[in-house]
């Protein structure tokens, strides 16, 4: 588990953002840079799954079961959070969708 490492990196980023240490020229491209890094990471994660022949093979056998369980988990989780979201976010507005790729 890398929780501590992740936390440290996020805190370093937060300090950079809070103190406004990014050059204005770079700031303009930050959104795009973030999007491309994200897609690059997802591409590598995909490659990792594609390279794993066992996973691909078992997906053919129990893929339907796995996707069904995952979809039900996700839908029930969203519904459960929806029940409490107003209570949790009291005094602040729900997150708004910002930039899109």
């Amino acid at each position: 588990m890398n929780i501590l490492l992740y936390l440290i990196i996020i805190i370093i980023g937060a300090i950079i953002g809070y103190r406004d240490l990014i050059k204005p020229g770079l700031k303009k491209h930050l959104g795009k840079l973030q999007s491309y890094s994200l897609l690059f990471l997802l591409l590598i994660m995909g490659i990792k799954i594609g390279l794993d022949r066992d996973t691909i093979k078992s997906f053919g056998l129990i893929g339907f079961q796995a996707v069904t369980l995952a979809v039900f988990s996700i839908i029930f989780s969203i519904a459960a959070v929806k029940l409490v979201s107003k209570h949790v976010l009291k005094e602040e507005k729900a997150g708004q969708t910002q930039n899109d790729i």
Binding site: L5, G13, F40
Partner: peptide, 18 residues
């Protein structure tokens, strides 16, 4: 994956700090 993730978490941190 580790490198990409660390880079992205840095960006998340910057968003939070702003």
């Amino acid at each position: 994956i580790d490198f990409g993730l660390c880079l992205l978490l840095l960006f998340v941190g910057i968003d939070i700090g702003r």
